[in-house]
Amino acid sequence: MSETPPDLTIQLRSKPRLLSSVRGMVLSLTQRVGFDENACGHIALAIDEALANIIRHGYEHREEEPIHMSIWVLQGEAKGIRIMIEDEAEQVDPELIQGRDLEDVRPGGLGVHIMREIMDDCRFEKRQQSQGMRVIMEKYVNPGRPDGSSLPSSTQET
């Protein structure tokens, strides 16, 4: 994980009604970073989906559980934003966190697909503590890395 302290940290409880406030904050921040209106909306959606996944699956709709959110504003050639969202729910194998086959039209299972579709990087990890998962997502203002690759090699989707 990044050794630089985050530019912004937010601690929130797992209440669905807080999601709109987080989206508002993300829209404002991403606009200031330099993303266009469409990208700002998409980033807010990806973060919303990450939080909703934690509330739905990690905490099974319990509303008083902790969620930790850290945001880094990325400068330089890879200008953009990195978001890390951590929970204290039961750990699962990150390899098992997959978006569903879109040909299979049914309710549910779209959140991870949306996160991976929108963000330039999206990876799930177990936290180092005995419980809890984290998701780390990055989005660049100018897609394509300075070296010409689409994503850092260590973060390619499996």
Binding site: L45, D48, E49, A52, R106, P107, G108, L110, G111, I114
Partner: peptide, 13 residues
């Protein structure tokens, strides 16, 4: 003005 996958899932239902 806004819908996430929860809303989409509801419409699929």
């Amino acid at each position: 003005p806004y819908m996430d996958s929860s809303g989409v899932a509801t419409l699929v239902e």
